[in-house]
Design a protein around this nucleic acid. Structure first.
Ligand code: FES
Ligand code: FES
Lengths: 141, 141
DNA sequence: TACATACCTGACTAAAATGGTCAAGTTTAG
DNA sequence: CTAAACTTGACCATTTTAGTCAGGTATGTA
């Protein structure tokens, strides 16, 4: 399973976006400055977020990014999947009958990792951007 | 957070051990063959497991490893910690007031990752080796 | 129309982590 | 005394990570 700064940055940036995109699109430069993330790296990340329809972009002066859905409709799963931070705990191909070691049968730990995967995914599916906003600004609706 | 083959192998090996150590100590070579894990790599892993009092060793011919506690007393947490696969999701030092980006305040995602950490640790604390045995051999007391 | 701003794309890379291997022991049952 | 098995530590190829860099292209505004 992976949880690296790419995923972390993606979430941070989107929380920032959710806070500030109410009037105008938010430029990556602003996010970069506010959150302390390299601009060039942000561009890579937002390129993926855009491909996955999590954000929309406007080019040109005064351009920037806007969320393409409401914060409560964007789940953490969506974000992490978008930037390729798939939660993958089992080693083998799940569909295959074969185990991770190439043997004919699933390994002794297969069920364990599978359970864990579900456990984590459930967590990410329940959490939305909205939850993070609430959590952090103490003031919501 | 990390979950790599070192942790995976550690768990596999210990399940194997739990099954076969009832009469004699089990040699790493046997585990290596049964589970398809490199012998040299297993040695690295067992060295750590021993330092953390999860297994005991007997040297010499017919030597090998034995669990140092009962399977139901060995939690997954213990195993993964022993091989340095700490579940660490927050980026910052938890005790510090500072955030992960060096700013004076915790970042907007701090609470999220902290919750996730708890969520995963709970899972690992509930699971013991015993559970895995049950799960896999269909026959237990 | 110029031009600054901001998105967009792809190649490149230093450093770290991963998943081992290799060599040279020491210990002890038989 | 010797073979099996643990012990230690150095070494290494490959992959991943976390970016940087160098060029674009689009567009609102002056
Ligand atoms: S993880 Fe699926 S068989 Fe080992
Ligand atoms: S993770 Fe703790 S401050 Fe960012």
């Amino acid at each position: 399973m992976k949880l690296t700064s790419k995923g972390r940055y993606a979430v941070m940036a989107l929380v920032d976006l959710a806070r500030f995109d109410t009037i105008n699109p938010v430029s990556l430069r602003d996010i970069s400055l506010r959150q302390g993330i390299s601009l060039d790296y942000l561009e890579q990340i937002f390129s993926k977020l855009k491909k996955n329809q999590i954000v929309k972009s406007t080019r040109g002066t005064q351009g920037g990014y806007v969320l393409s859905k409401k914060p409560n409709e964007i789940k953490l799963t969506n974000i992490l999947n978008a930037v390729d931070e798939k939660v993958k705990t089992v080693q083998c191909k799940k569909e295959s009958k074969k185990g991770c070691n190439g043997k004919a049968t699933k390994c002794v730990t297969h069920n364990l990792w599978d359970e864990l995967e579900t456990h984590i995914n459930t967590f990410f599916e329940k959490k939305s951007l909205q939850d993070l906003l609430k959590n952090n600004s103490e003031r919501v609706n």
